[in-house]
Amino acid sequence: MEFIKEIIIPTLCLAVIGGILGLALAFAGAKFAVKVDKRIKKITKVLPGANCGGCGYTGCQACAEAIVKGDAKVNACTVAGDAMVAEIAEIMGVAPEKAIRIRAQVMCSGTHLNNAKKKYHYEGVKDCSAAVRMGGGDKVCPNGCVGLGSCVKSCVFDAIKILNGIAAVDYDKCRGCGACVAACPKHIIRLIPYDSAHWVGCCSVDKGAVTRQFCDVGCIGCRKCEKVCESGAITVDGFIASIDYSKCVDCGKCVDICPRHIIWSRDQQDKIGLTVEPEDFIDNTKLNK
């Protein structure tokens, strides 16, 4: 009798409570089932599944939900190619759009070895954030690439290397996820359209005379590029030129006129490539001429 009272009843009691709750939940699960759009599942399957966050959503699932909901376009995924976008467009029943491919670009041309002037010799932890805490890094320029590779570490696609003391992006490997943009303590990595052939390789917002003291190649805000640009794509705001890629027609006039040689063109970058000897890469001022 004691046995029944002390073991069986409590066990049965909990088992019954648990069983009832379980059944109730199972019933509720069926009764309150929310119809999930089948397209979400399909699109999630099509998407790369890297959950890189390049699309601006928390992951591939969230991106798929946004596409189905209509918040995002079928080409929202920056990693997807044309084939993948076409597949998503088919699921959604809309006309396929061209995949938007973007890439990261380090907006600094101040290599350690010649262009950018240094404040001190840094001998600390090989990490940009750590170096930036030491008086803003070893470069005089407050917006220069520190070159210790925080972005390299952040890249899951292995697309960034340090060349000549500044970070360089391997465009073929870059999928435009933006991890490096977030990792850079100087905020000098930008995402630009993959096909865009020109970019301003500088982020110095100081006056021309001040920038000259930092670096041999910094933007001095002379506005020559702004004047020469026929499509009105370049604006100089706060002593730094910037290109509006929706207007840029890749004519290349700004490259020729820039007295500081910091407007870079894709051709020139391709010529230099990422495999060249450091000596060639450093000399971008001469190459531009």
Binding site: L21, A24, F32
Partner: peptide, 21 residues
């Protein structure tokens, strides 16, 4: 132990209910 069981089930139930209605 019974209360933990109930609270856990209740939270699940409320979640389902809210999600639906």
């Amino acid at each position: 132990i019974a209360f933990i069981l109930i609270i856990a089930a209740l939270v699940q139930f409320i979640e389902m209910f809210l999600r639906k209605y």
